[in-house]
């Protein structure tokens, strides 16, 4: 029986008069790779950041494994931001030490193995790497944790197609199968091959969700085609 790793009840986030999320109710099951799909401004990043504890909700609540957002949930959640977040002057070995110090579930040998496969030396300073490689390093750190929930915000945005394939392969080969991976993206065609489930987000509301395989069988369309069809019909997409 699946257990629920994330629960959102009446989750609302407003920026002034604009509602980025509007009374969202959602449950995410354990052990699935779920795509949080939507156009720009639909609320994907806002939802991810609420789950990561970087934003506070205007109303409603969000819980991870039954716990309110706090140090306990942050120990269970591995978050990948949509842009490089570490200081550029830091060496990669220092980042490995940092993760090892704060996260008990960090698998350092795995991280070093992935960096070795990328040809990146731990003595390299982050600022000397290209943007794509910086993002890969960040992904390696995130995916080297044995977390219950992985929150990946636009992991393949802004990188070349070969790098996208590498990132997606890293995600599916390195995550714990009992964990849940939530990938937010608008690049549907690249990511749909790895998805178990999908959520279509529009103006802060989930408008459609389901199993990726089932929807392809039912409709005879790819998720990308379905996404274009659904959002073509909606205003302001």
């Amino acid at each position: 029986m699946e257990s629920t790793v994330l629960t959102a009840r009446g989750l609302t986030k407003r920026y002034g008069s604009a509602a980025a999320l509007d009374g969202m109710d959602l449950e995410l099951p354990q052990g699935k790779i779920i795509g949080l799909l939507g156009p720009n401004g639909s609320g994907k990043t806002t939802f991810i950041k609420l789950a990561a504890g970087l934003l506070t909700p205007t109303a409603g609540e969000i819980r991870i494994c039954g716990e309110k957002i706090g140090p306990a949930t942050k120990a269970m959640v591995s978050y990948l931001p949509d842009r490089p977040a570490f200081g550029k002057s830091q060496k990669i070995s220092q980042l490995l030490d940092f993760y090892g110090d704060f996260y008990l579930d960090f698998d350092r040998p795995r991280a070093e193995g992935m960096l070795n496969a990328l040809g990146i030396s731990p003595d390299t300073r982050l600022g000397t790497l290209s943007k794509g490689n910086q993002e890969k390093v960040q992904l390696v750190l995130v995916m080297s944790r044995r977390a219950r929930l992985y929150l990946l915000d636009e992991p393949i945005g802004g990188v070349d197609p070969a790098a996208r394939d590498y990132i997606l392969n890293t995600i599916i080969t390195n995550y714990d199968p009992s964990a849940t991976v939530l990938i937010s993206t608008h690049l549907i065609s690249d990511v749909e091959r790895v998805l178990d489930e999908f959520l279509f987000l529009h103006r802060g509301q989930v408008i459609r969700r389901g199993s990726a395989d089932e929807i392809r069988e039912e409709t005879g369309k790819s998720l990308d085609e379905l996404f274009r069809e659904v959002f073509k019909c909606l205003p302001n997409c």
Partner: peptide
């Protein structure tokens, strides 16, 4: 700043 994404997602109070 962006480094806050790392700081405020650490399992600390």
């Amino acid at each position: 700043t962006d480094e806050g994404f790392v700081t405020f997602t650490l399992p600390v109070t």
